[in-house]
Structures are given as structure tokens and as C-alpha cells.
Design a protein around this nucleic acid. Structure first.
Ligand code: MN
Ligand code: MN
Ligand code: MN
Ligand code: MN
Lengths: 149, 149
DNA sequence: TCGATTCTGTAGCACTGGCTACATTATGCA
DNA sequence: TGCATAATGTAGCCAGTGCTACAGAATCGA
């Protein structure tokens, strides 16, 4: 009830307010994305995802990891039992796959613009969480155009 | 002391850990960037930046704005007096100018890839805060190549 | 001019995600 | 096999950023 009353039909044009709200929501989700992505990688490479390995790779203490894992469990992305390693739910695996793909596209896209590998990796870590479906598609188009194949 | 010991000379290759730490730091700064950018816009268009206008545009309550402004004042980006409007310090103006420029480049860049204006605005609101100097330069190069002029 | 309304500010709550200090459980090796 | 070490977990602190409820100051129009 704080919209410009009458004006349906064509899309109502997103306001700055709505864009900022969306960005805040993305921030709330990005920890989840980085975590499930890393859990999937650890399971693939080490056979299991342990709190201590995540803490070392994330650069935070194990306490922070434990509390975040508890939240992700509450949200249905992972499962754990006391003193056991971490597993992904079906939804967690889905999100991990999607996040990894987007991450790779963003890195490849930045590199295709001539950005160094190191900076591409670094910037992608933040940018990835704010790339919509439409923008991701545009990145892929750009890569296909340049990449040949 | 958790680096690969011996291997100086050329840059030590940033670890995932360091990239994530950098992303966290960027998040701590992005509120400041969006605020000073908006304060500059309000001063330019309305003659002054008031709490209530910022709250409406940001989509948060005035309480949140007041507390954030207090922090920005502590950090030397703005000045205020009780019941008076908000001013930028020299450093605040510098940051506002830089943020606005980067915001505009990011939006223009996304649009140049064929992303719709609405989505470009929305994605840029988050992406802008993770675009390094080097990536920004790559965006500008890409725009100059396509844009002609 | 003065009273209603609007604006600014404070108190106190929730949640996230950092941390240290300490407790408990598992693990691995002598 | 047992004990030192490593890993996991809990308690409680902090800062940031949301919120509602309420208090105080400023403004505007009748
Ligand atoms: Mn990331
Ligand atoms: Mn972000
Ligand atoms: Mn902006
Ligand atoms: Mn922004």
C-alpha cells in the first residue's frame, strides 16, 4: 500500500527501495551458498566435510562454522549429528550445484574481459551472489560469442 | 604463518580464505557507500538530506537510518547535529563521488551486455560493491570498445 | 500563536556472524 | 590400552542492521 496506486498492466518498474531490499536478501543467502558449495567440494575431494576443514578454508573459527551449520540445518540445507561430519540435503546439493556453476561462469566471464585470474577469483566471490538469472544468461552469451567452440 | 612457507618474489596467489575475508570487508563498507551516495543525491536534488527521506528511499525505518548515520559520523564520513539534516565530510563526498561513478559504470556495463534496464539497476545495487579497480577498468574498456565515440 | 502533525531520537528486542574461553567427545599413537 | 591431542560443542561477549514502542523537538497551518 505504498505503491503509486493505479497503474497495473506493464511491470511496475522496480524502485531503488525494492532493489536495496533485494540486495539485503541476497546477503542473507550468500553465506548459505558459499557454505554448501564448500561442503560439496570437501565431500568430493576429502570424502567428508568436517567443521575444522571448513573453518580453515573459510578463515573463521570453528565456532562460527558450527553456528552457521546449525542455521543451515534449521533451513533444511544440511544434516549433521553430534561429532559427525556434515551432509547436504537434496536441496543443499541443488543449491551447491547452482552456486558452483554460477561461480564458475562469473570467474570465466571476468577473465574473458581481461581481468587477471587472481582478481577474477577474488571479485567473483562477492559478485556471484548478486548475479540474477538474466545477467548470468548475458554472461554466458558473451562467453559463447568470444569463446568460439 | 599458514602459507606455503618458501615462495617469495611474485605475488603469493590469494587463497579462498583471503578472498572471503575481502568480501566480508566489502560488505561492511557497502552500507556506507549506499548512504553517502544517497546523501549526495538528496543534497543535490532537495537541498538537504533528512533522515525521513533516506528511510523512505532505503526502505527501512528511520531508526535504522539514525543509527547508521551515527556510525558514519563516528567513521568521519558525515556530520550532523541533533534535529538537523545530514552533511558529508570531504571524505564522505569523495566516497560518494567514487561510489556513484562505479554504480553508473556497472549499470551501463550490464546494459551493454543486453541486460534489461530494470535488472541492470537491480543487480548493480549489489554487484557494485564487489567490483575492484581492475575489474572496473575492464568494464570501462568494454564500454569504450562497444560504445564507439 | 498554539496545537496537531511530522520529524528526530532513545530503549530495547531479534538475528547474523565475528570472537575467546572453556567443556566434552573422538582419535590416534606409544 | 590408555592418554595426549585434535575435533566438536557451549557460553557469553561484541558489532551491525533490522524492528516496535515510546519520548521529545520542530514545523506548519488554522
Ligand atoms: Mn561467494
Ligand atoms: Mn554483496
Ligand atoms: Mn549504489
Ligand atoms: Mn549498492
Amino acid at each position: 500500500m505504498d505503491q503509486l496506486a493505479a497503474k497495473p498492466s506493464h511491470t511496475p518498474a522496480p524502485t531503488l527501495k525494492e532493489n536495496l531490499r533485494k540486495t539485503r536478501e541476497e546477503h542473507a543467502r550468500e553465506t548459505a551458498q558459499d557454505y554448501v558449495e564448500m561442503i560439496a567440494e570437501l565431500i568430493a575431494s576429502q570424502g567428508e566435510a568436517r567443521v575444522i576443514d571448513m573453518a580453515r578454508r573459510l578463515g573463521v573459527t570453528h565456532v562460527t562454522v558450527i553456528r552457521t551449520i546449525q542455521r543451515l540445518q534449521r533451513e533444511g540445507l544440511v544434516t549433521t549429528q553430534p561429532y559427525r561430519s556434515i551432509f547436504l540435503t537434496a536441496e543443499g546439493r541443488r543449491l551447491a550445484k547452482e552456486s558452483r556453476h554460477r561461480h564458475e561462469v562469473v570467474v570465466a566471464f571476468l577473465e574473458s574481459l581481461g581481468v587477471s585470474a587472481a582478481v577474477s577469483q577474488s571479485d567473483a566471490e562477492g559478485i556471484e551472489h548478486h548475479v540474477s538469472r538474466e545477467t548470468l544468461a548475458a554472461f554466458v552469451r558473451h562467453l559463447e560469442k568470444k569463446g568460439g567452440a
